[in-house]
Amino acid sequence: MKRGTIDFWVGLFAIAGFAALMFLALKVSTLSSLPAAQTYTLTANFENIGGLKVRAPVKSAGVVVGRVDAIELDTERYVARVTLAMDQRYRFSRDSSAEILTSGLLGEQYIGVTTGADDVQLKSGDTFKITSSALVLEQLISRFLFSKAAGDDTATPEK
């Protein structure tokens, strides 16, 4: 094998290898976690977070506006404190609400943010005042059964 031929094939090999890497980087995956400089932090307390995981998306009107950064238990009030890394570009009013939702019946859980009417906006480090917990299937079923057992006066259990 001549030297020139080897050089040619190795060059082609390198190009193919990097093309494969670029394909994996650009077409297959995304840089989901935003760089730290472009985010601000908000917290939200939930009575129950269900199956929410770190890195789960935060969505508003279906658009991803942040990620769940950390989840911990507040040992004073025994609620889950969820820290959110929010995209710098999106600001929400002070009376916005956060709720834990599920995409589809069996899909992953995410946090949905619905904005309020207040003129003052949430700053970095602020906490959502209004939150609603995850829908836990067992609680839902037991509530339904209890209301059935209690009598026929209630029709369908409310959420």
Partner: peptide, 15 residues
């Protein structure tokens, strides 16, 4: 097919 893949595969964590 592509967009779901892109949404679920994280560059740093997976690739």
């Amino acid at each position: 097919f592509w967009s779901q893949m892109q949404g679920a595969v994280d560059f740093r964590l997976d690739v």
